[in-house]
Design a binder for these strands. Structure first.
Length: 572
DNA sequence: GCCGTTTTCGGCCCGACTGTTTTCAGTCG
C-alpha cells in the first residue's frame, strides 16, 4: 500500500491525541503535532524520500526518533507505538477531543473515572447526569457537552470561502451601524484567504463606552451566545458557523491583527524570533522588558524583529519567514494583474449566456481577452460540442471578433480526457483553436498509477495547452482523484503545458501547495473561473487568493500577459 | 520529542473566558 503524507499526518495526530490523554509531557505531544502538520504540508512525497534514502531529519521538527517512525510507517503501513497506545487506552478516545469543551484533561478524567471510551457512552452518561458529578465538571459543562454532541452529529463542516464571505459581509455591515465603532476587520484564516474557513474572527476598535459586545450578540442571525466578556465574545450563527469578536485600542490594533490573523504556526515562529531578540510579542504589542515599543500596525511589529511586512496569505510558516529575512518575499499577484479569463462556458454547452454577453461582461471587468471553452461531446449532459458544432462556433467567434471592440475572444475548448488518456475530439479540429484545455470529467476512481498515466497521455497531445481543474476535487463534496502531482507537473513542463487554478470556490483546484510546487518546478499557471454565467466571472478573486497562498507572482501566471505574449505562450 | 551564536541540558507562546472553585484549572485560539 502506498503511504501518502496525509497517512503519516493522521498517525502522528492520533499519537499526539492519545499521548495527551494519557497525560504525557506536553512538549512531547507538541513534537508529534508539529511533525504531523509539517508532513501534511510538505510538497514532496515522504515515502519517495524514504525510498531514495534521503535524510528526513533535514525536515524541520523531525529528529532521529520521528525519522525512524516515519520510515516504519512507510515500510509497514502502520506504527507499533500507535497500536500499543490504542491497546493501552482506546482507539475512539481521540474522537472525544473533537467535542468543543473537552480537552485532554477532561477526556482522561471521564475515561479513568467512568470508563467512557466513545461519543455514544459520553452522551448516555451526560443524559443521566453522571458526568456532572465528577470533580471539576458541573451541570453547565454537561449541558454544553450534550449540545456539542448534537451539533457534531448534525454536521461537521468548514465553510467554503465564498459562503464565509457572504456571512462575514453582512455581519460587518451590521456591526458598523453602531456609532462609535471604528475599524472592523475579519482576521483568521478568512484573511489568509484559505479555501475553507472554520470560524470568523472579527477585530474591532471603537470609542470608549461603545457597547459593541451587546450589539454583537444581538445580531439577528445569532443562534447561541457561547461567551460574552468585555473584550472578547463568541456566538454561533444559524448557519452553524462560530464568530468571535475582540476589541482593541488603536495602539494595539496592528499586533492584535497579526496575532488573530495567524496562522498559529506563523505566530509561534515570530514570537520565537522576538524572544531571541529579548522582546515579547503578544496581541497588545511588542514589549522590551515591560515597555511597549510597537503595536499600531502590523508593519511596525514586523519591523521590530527586522522583517518586512509579510502578506497574510503567506503566513503559514512554510518558508515565508526565511524568505522575508533574505528580502526574497514574492511580489504576489493581484486581481488587477489579470488581463483575461481563459475558461468560460456559454449557452453553446452548459453556460447560461451568449458568447457576446460573456465577452461584454468580461470587457466591463477590464479584460483584454477571454477564451470560450465549451465542453466536448463526451460530456453529453452538458451539451458538449461535436467537431461539427465546434467548427461552427469557431466561425461564429470569428464573426463576433470582427464586430467587437476592446476585447478579443480566443477560440478554445475544454475537451474531455477519455479513459485511455486520448482526447475526446480529433487533432484536426483542435489544431484550429487558440487554446485547448483538457479535463477529467469521469472515471474518477482509477488507481493513482492509472489516473496519472491517463493525464500524462493527455498532456502529451501536441495540441494540449492547459490541464483543467487538475485534481477534480470539490471542496466538502468530493475528494481529489488520486494522482502523482509531481509527475504531472514534470510532464507539463516537458510538453510546454500549463496547469489551471480553477477559481470556482467549490474547486480552487490546484490547491496552494501544488501551486507553489508548480512554480518551483517552473510550470506556469492559468487562473481561470470556469464561469457558466456572468456572475461566475467574479470568482476570479478566489483564485487570486489561492494563487497568492501558493506564492504566485504575476510572471508565474499566463493570463497576466498581453494578448500577443499569451498567444506566443500558447503556440507549441 | 526537538533543538542549539545560552549546544548535549533545559527550555519549548501566551492571554481571555467559563465554570467550578474558594483561588484556579481547563479550554481555546
Amino acid at each position: 500500500m502506498p503511504i501518502h503524507n496525509n497517512d503519516i499526518k493522521e498517525i502522528f495526530t492520533r499519537v499526539a491525541d492519545l499521548l495527551e490523554i494519557k497525560g504525557e509531557n506536553q512538549f512531547r505531544v507538541r513534537a508529534y503535532r508539529n511533525a504531523a502538520r509539517t508532513i501534511g504540508e510538505l510538497s514532496q512525497n515522504v515515502a519517495d524520500m524514504v525510498e531514495k534514502g534521503e535524510d528526513l531529519t533535514e525536515i524541520s521538527g523531525i529528529g532521529k526518533d520521528l525519522a525512524g517512525k516515519i520510515e516504519e510507517i512507510v515500510k509497514t503501513g502502520t506504527l507499533k507505538m500507535l497500536q500499543d497506545l490504542e491497546k493501552e487506552t482506546s482507539p475512539e478516545l481521540t474522537k472525544l477531543l473533537q467535542i468543543p469543551g473537552l480537552g485532554a484533561k477532561r477526556v482522561k478524567l471521564i475515561y479513568e473515572k467512568l470508563g467512557i471510551t466513545n461519543v455514544k457512552e459520553l452522551k448516555e452518561s451526560a443524559e443521566k447526569g453522571i458526568l456532572s458529578k465528577l470533580y471539576g465538571l458541573g451541570e453547565k459543562t454537561e449541558k454544553k457537552i450534550l449540545r456539542e454532541i448534537g451539533r457534531l452529529e448534525e454536521s461537521e463542516k468548514r465553510f467554503n470561502i465564498a459562503a464565509a464571505e457572504q456571512i462575514a459581509d453582512s455581519y460587518i455591515q451590521y456591526l458598523k451601524k453602531l456609532s462609535g465603532v471604528n475599524d472592523v476587520i475579519i482576521a483568521g484564516s478568512y484573511r489568509r484567504r484559505k479555501e475553507t474557513v472554520g470560524d470568523l474572527d472579527i477585530l474591532t476598535t471603537c470609542e470608549q463606552d461603545t457597547d459593541i459586545m451587546e450589539h454583537f450578540v444581538k445580531y439577528e442571525d445569532v443562534s447561541e451566545v457561547i461567551s460574552k466578556g468585555n473584550t472578547k465574545s463568541s456566538v454561533i450563527l444559524r448557519s452553524g458557523i462560530q464568530v468571535d469578536i475582540r476589541v482593541f485600542t488603536p495602539e494595539s490594533y496592528g499586533s492584535a491583527l497579526l496575532y488573530f490573523t495567524g496562522s498559529k504556526a506563523h505566530n509561534i515562529a515570530i514570537r520565537k524570533i522576538a524572544q531571541e531578540m529579548g522582546l515579547k510579542i503578544n496581541e497588545y504589542g511588542v514589549f522590551k522588558t515591560d515597555k511597549k515599543i510597537a503595536g499600531k500596525s502590523e508593519e511596525e511589529v514586523y519591523k521590530q524583529i527586522d522583517l518586512p511586512y509579510i502578506p497574510p496569505e503567506l503566513r503559514e510558516n512554510r518558508g515565508e519567514i526565511e524568505s522575508a529575512r533574505k528580502g526574497k518575499l514574492p511580489n504576489l499577484l493581484e486581481l488587477g494583474d489579470i488581463r483575461g479569463d481563459l475558461h468560460i462556458h456559454t449557452e453553446w454547452s452548459d453556460g447560461h449566456f451568449t458568447i457576446e454577453e460573456m465577452a461584454e461582461a468580461a470587457r466591463e471587468r477590464g479584460y483584454e481577452y477571454i477564451a470560450i471553452t465549451e465542453h466536448s461531446r463526451h460530456t453529453s449532459v452538458a451539451n458538449g460540442l461535436t467537431p461539427e458544432r465546434l467548427a461552427q462556433q469557431i466561425r461564429r467567434i470569428d464573426e463576433i471578433n470582427h464586430k467587437l471592440d476592446g476585447i478579443t475572444i480566443l477560440k478554445g475548448i475544454e475537451v474531455d480526457i477519455l479513459e485511455d488518456g486520448s482526447l475526446d475530439l480529433p487533432d484536426e479540429i483542435l489544431s484550429k483553436l487558440d487554446i485547448v484545455i483538457c479535463s477529467v470529467h469521469y472515471k474518477f476512481n482509477l488507481s493513482r498509477k492509472e489516473q496519472t498515466a491517463r493525464i500524462i497521455n493527455a498532456l502529451q497531445n501536441p495540441y494540449t495547452n492547459v490541464l483543467g481543474h487538475p485534481t477534480g476535487r470539490m471542496i466538502n463534496k468530493r475528494e481529489p482523484y488520486q494522482v502523482d502531482m509531481e509527475k504531472i507537473i514534470k510532464c507539463a513542463r516537458d510538453n510546454n503545458c500549463f496547469l489551471e487554478l480553477n477559481s470556482h470556490p467549490d474547486r480552487l483546484d490546484l490547491n496552494d501547495i501544488h501551486c507553489k510546487m508548480a512554480k518551483q518546478m517552473g510550470v506556469k499557471i492559468a487562473i481561470s473561473t470556469d464561469a457558466h454565467s456572468i456572475n461566475g466571472l467574479d470568482y476570479m478573486r478566489y483564485g487570486i487568493g489561492q494563487g497568492r497562498r501558493g506564492w504566485l507572482e504575476p510572471h508565474d501566471v499566463i493570463n497576466t500577459r498581453t494578448l500577443s505574449e499569451l498567444q506566443k505562450l500558447l503556440k507549441k
